[in-house]
Design a binder for these strands. Structure first.
Length: 923
RNA sequence: GCCCGAAUGGUGGAAUGGUAGACACGAGGGACUUAAAAUCCCUUGGCCAUUAGGCUGUGUGGGUUCGAGUCCCACUUCGGGUACCA
């Protein structure tokens, strides 16, 4: 049989399907292995050739582990809720569920062609009520929880209520928005509404009035990780800061555990570092500044540079700070109001682009607690309301932002570190010896910065001026979206009090339009009878995109369970994901939320593993390779790339499918668009050569390569091998279809070892020494490569091995059978077809065993070694592999030319590294 | 600004501190063929040389080492992340 990928792949796919070969169940007789891909959002554009890269890698690992005898869980599903489907629905009136169904079907057919070993019986879709009831369930559990900082875990809110009833708020050590103080009697005297409001301050899923990223164009709020450089990640629309009443998740309560957990997981250092930065732990101190002439108020600030207190020459409040109202004096009111008004109209983006110094004096003065000096309090938007206390002490000599502000408002700048020149810029480094820092009680002069920080912290704690405090940059996640296409939040309002609605799933209702209502309510405001059976109104906001992806990996373990997210039995067997493959763009979103969600469930014993993903690999992006033609200005003549510099030209992107090896198919180009129908060409060597550039793969660049086309022309096995062959999995690299022929040739050669026309070449002859060596070299290399995720070098090893075996005219079943098994993870269709055809098995190759390599077959008769003499001379000698060290020395000295280089010196030391080198030290 | 990562032929990329450029594409030459496709063989970092062979070579400049693409220091360029986080 000739290699015919279409016939082979359709036949083998049917075989797998008929036997449901990838179905997996708990099997305690085998060790488990859980390989997971980040599930895709099924977009309307379908998959391009870059998307399956990670899936192919994980599939190779999954198949390899299975061949090694592991019980492998390798599921797939769809992250089906999302903005594009909803935007499309708003434009066309098409229900997002319909587009989502169409898109998932398309994805499925594309994925099926590539031969993945997914257990589709475990497929999940985040928009399926049977799935999202568990997203809602987890949300309600968070709603009914608070974070006990003493126990360092989430606890049922009832425990907190018990404490309030017996002791009030005193002694409660819980994560909260704001420290509250009340007695047990005061608690008991509260109305239901007041109690509810109080508990909101502690719940892990809570409602609060917070500054949010509001995107007017999308009509919804966005989480911090959904905003980049002042615009929405989806769509790129401007985002502004706005105070709104929102649902939030108290992710910040888990900041320290999320940070500590990173040390126990096998992720790339760069992504761990990104998470560390995002969590942003900073150790400092909270300090109180008295306000001159006011006994009713203290100004609380956070600083990491307690040592610089003597250099504080002014204070700054964030414009949104609660202190602004209290500290603005009547004389300054007008100026402050005017300033606040201008700030309001500056969007986040404008503030970023235009960093000019702005601010206004509040009229009040604070008193430096250490020096007793009076210092003015300013208001400026360079201080953020959401971090620390929203107020800072400004030390212009040692902070560049304070420095710029001081220069602008002509405020004094006092250097505090010896030798620091602050005439041109601030000295921000945390090093040096303190000067100008002796107060009436605390004297820091002569201390190092480190010592001074410690001394100041000690002092302020003793004097009750402040306390040591650790701050985190990580914010609570805003959890409501004013959108339709998401999970409904299972909350109803009983007499205005938010109450859990626990008849799950709370299904997403039908609406007539997907836009906000005329009164500005979210789209769910259009739903008919959106009430509880008792008539209480239900929450109109829906959950954000990250909700559904936060615990999906648990659901795969037990996808049809209607009693629990995952049964104890399934969770204890599968535990957590051994290998997770996906893009690094989720570092500060999904990969934080999932870890948070998992830790929350862990606190309640719902899952047995504290970290969800043990090893994480971030596959690189596959970029497009865009081709250009060059039109001579104001003509319809196109000049070949090598000659374009002789003319004044405009580059035009052309469809990559009309270009082969950078040579343009001119007829196809003329037919592409009417305006090019009578195009003329200036050629070089009779061809039109295109220019090229590496860009994002997208429709608008005309550089999209569809995996379906590749499968059609070369087959899935070739596509899989070629994607791996392109380069290291984690690197970004451009797709270039040109090289695929080499891999295609390889797979045909591989096939040719087993078949010549209709003649099966496999026989029972004994393998030669060379055959065994070629095979075992391959097994060793590929086994090591898969462990190291170095798939590109594996493909190279295959090519070498197949060439050697072809040259040796190897026909031995003893060689060809294990060879097919080793290739099976990479090229499963061909391997399966050969396994059943040429090798005559009546079972699937998926149930074969991974061959072990034998060192004995790798042994060489002799090795060539480089011998070097003091670096001055070097030559190669060939010696028997087991030759003793003394004999190697002797042989080296006898070797041709050695005497000349040695020049009468004696050999002092000789180092032999088997197979590699002999290092001879002479004197 | 800060934090990562990278830099090797015409191209994608190989090289536990030990013969740099595996493997593949492309290119050039050849075989087969009426021809083309397909297939196979040879050459292919640069320079010099008829050959033998020699010199040179992994972004730049130093250093460690018998020996550096690999380790250390400084720099340049590119890519990614992040940012008034006090």
């Amino acid at each position: 049989m000739e290699y015919n990928h279409k016939e082979i792949e359709s036949r083998v796919a049917q075989y797998w399907k008929d036997r449901n070969i990838y179905h997996v169940e708990i099997d305690r007789s085998k060790p488990k292995y859980y390989v997971l891909d980040m599930f895709p959002y099924p977009s309307g554009a379908g998959l391009h050739v870059g998307h399956p890269l990670g899936y192919i890698a994980s599939d190779i690992v999954a198949r390899h582990k299975r061949l090694q005898g592991f019980n492998v869980l390798h599921p797939m599903g769809y992250d089906a809720y999302g903005l594009p489907a909803e935007q499309y629905a708003i434009q066309t009136g098409q229900h997002p569920e319909v587009t989502t169904r169409i898109n998932t079907a398309r994805y499925r057919s594309q994925l099926d062609k590539i031969g993945f070993s997914f257990d589709w019986d475990r497929e999940i879709r985040t928009c399926d009520p049977e799935f999202y009831r568990w997203t809602q369930w987890a949300f309600l559990k968070m709603f009914a929880s608070y974070y006990d900082k003493t126990a360092d875990r989430a606890m049922p809110i009832e425990k907190l209520i018990e404490k309030f009833e017996s002791e009030g708020a005193e002694g409660v050590n819980a994560a909260c928005n704001k420290e509250l103080h009340f007695t047990a009697d005061e608690w008991k005297a509260m109305s239901d509404k007041e109690k509810s409001d109080t508990l909101m301050n502690y719940r892990l899923a809570y409602q609060a009035n917070t500054m949010v990223n509001w995107c007017p164009k999308l009509g919804t709020v966005l989480a911090n990780d959904e905003v980049s450089e002042g615009v929405s990640v989806r769509g790129g629309y401007p985002v502004e800061q706005k105070e709104m009443w929102q649902w939030c998740l108290r992710v910040s309560a888990y900041a320290e555990r999320l940070l500590q957990g990173l040390d126990r997981i096998d992720w790339s250092e760069s992504i761990k570092e990104t998470q560390r930065n995002w969590i942003g732990r900073s150790e400092g101190a909270e300090m109180h500044f008295r306000i001159d002439g006011r006994d009713d108020i203290d100004l609380e600030i956070f600083t990491t540079r307690a040592d610089t207190v003597f250099g504080v020459t002014f204070m700054v409040l964030a414009p949104e700070s609660k202190y602004v109202k209290e500290l603005t004096t009547p004389e300054q009111k007008e100026a402050v109001d005017a300033y606040l008004e201008t700030i309001k109209h500056r969007t986040e983006r404008e503030r970023m682009i235009d960093k000019k110094v702005t601010g206004v004096f509040s009229g009040s003065y604070a008193v430096n607690p250490l020096s007793g000096k009076k210092i003015p309090v300013y208001i400026s938007d360079y201080v953020l309301a959401g971090y620390g206390t929203g107020a800072i002490m400004a030390v212009p000599a040692h902070d560049s932002r304070d420095y710029a502000f001081a220069r602008h408002f002509e405020l004094p700048i006092i250097p505090l570190i010896e030798g620091a020149d602050v005439s041109e810029e601030s000295f921000d480094a945390k090093e040096g010896t303190m000067i100008n820092s002796d107060g009436p009680e605390l004297k820091l002069n002569g201390l190092s910065v480190k010592e001074a920080i410690a001394a100041t912290k000690r002092f302020i704690e003793e004097k009750g001026i402040g306390r040591v405090k650790t701050n985190y940059r990580l914010r609570d996640a805003i959890f409501s979206r004013q959108r339709y296409w998401g999970e409904p939040i299972p909350i109803c309002y009983v007499d205005g009090i938010p109450t859990a609605f626990d008849q799950l799933p709370l299904e997403l209702p039908e609406v007539d339009k997907y836009l906000p209502t005329e009164t500005g309510e979210p789209p769910l405001g259009r739903a008919k009878n959106w009430n509880t059976p008792e008539g209480y109104p239900l929450e109109l906001n829906t959950m954000p995109g990250f909700a559904g992806s936060s615990a999906y990996y648990l659901r795969y373990m037990d996808p049809h369970n209607d009693k629990a997210l995952v049964s104890r039995e399934a969770d204890e067997y599968w535990r957590s994901v051994d290998l997770y493959i996906g893009g690094s763009e989720h570092a500060t979103g999904h990969l934080i939320y999932s870890r948070f969600w998992n830790k929350f469930l862990y606190d309640y014993g719902e899952v047995v593993d504290d970290e969800p993903f043990h090893k994480l690999i971030n596959q690189g992006m596959i970029q497009g390779r865009t081709s250009f033609v060059y039109r001579i200005k104001d003509t319809n003549t196109f000049v070949s790339a090598g000659l374009k510099d002789q003319y004044d030209t405009t580059p035009i992107r052309v469809d990559i499918n009309m270009v082969s090896n950078d040579v343009l198919d001119m007829d196809a180009f003329r037919a592409w668009r009417p305006e090019f129908a009578d195009a003329e060409f200036v050629l070089e060597d009779g061809r039109y050569v295109c220019g090229h550039a590496v860009e994002k793969m997208s429709k608008s660049m005309h550089n999209v390569v569809n995996p379906d086309d590749m499968v059609e022309r070369y087959g899935a096995d070739t596509l899989r091998l070629y994607e791996m062959f392109l380069g290291p999995l984690e690197a970004s690299k451009p797709w270039d279809t040109n090289g695929i022929d080499g891999v295609f040739r390889f797979i045909k050669k591989f096939w040719g070892l087993y078949w010549k026309g209709d003649d099966c070449l496999v026989d029972s002859s004994a393998p030669s020494r060379e055959n065994l060596k070629s095979l075992h070299k391959l097994i060793k290399k590929v086994s090591a490569d898969i462990e190291a995720f170095s798939f590109n070098t594996s493909v190279a090893a295959f090519m070498i091995c197949i060439n050697e075996l072809a040259q040796q005219k190897c026909r031995s079943r003893e060689i060809l059978e294990p060879l097919a098994v080793v290739l099976a993870p990479f090229a499963p269709f061909a391997a399966e077809a050969l396994w059943q055809g040429a090798l005559g098995h009546d079972s699937s190759i998926c149930d074969a065993s991974w061959p072990a390599y034998e060192e004995a077959h790798l042994k060489e008769d002799s090795v060539t070694m480089a011998v070097s003499f003091n670096g001055k001379a070097r030559f190669n000698i060939t010696v028997p592999v087991d030759m003793a060290r003394e004999d190697v020395e002797k042989t080296a000295l006898e070797a041709e030319g050695a005497a000349k280089w040695l020049d009468g010196k004696t050999v002092r030391k000789i180092i032999v590294v088997p197979g590699k080198i002999v290092n001879i030290v002479v004197s």
